[in-house]
Amino acid sequence: MNLTRRGALALGAGFAATVLLPATALHAAVDEALAKFTGGAAVGEGGITLSTPEIAENGNTVPVSVSAPGAVAIMLLAEGNPSPGVCTFNFGPLAASQSATTRIRLAGTQRVIAVAKMADGSFVQAANEVKVTIGGCGG
């Protein structure tokens, strides 16, 4: 094993900095996006399914599916992105289900949040953590 002590410490310090830096600012942005969508209403749980890979092989293209039977709209947020907004699906009368699949960018390991606005005006949410692989080889 040839890794120097100094090298290992430097690695550790860099890692900690990356993880700790953005947390507070990001939560404010997430709260703001949520408030805009819900108008400040309480957000419950259940009735919404969010499917994400446990480990994304590359953060540039992460498949995400969401389903909330009876919803009129579903908003997706990525908590750890520079800006948390991802997309909002508004379902029309000819939608056969209130579900959709897309591919999204994740700046790193983080929580993806889906919030559904139901037909009765209530809100529910689901959130999954997605680990984003930092590849071995850039290419």
Binding site: V62, A78, G85, V86, C87, L94, A100, T102
Partner: peptide, 18 residues
Amino acid sequence: VLDATLEPAVSTNPYVEF
């Protein structure tokens, strides 16, 4: 059927299935 708002976090070559 569907009216979607997309942000910059949607990947290159946007894919939507519904």
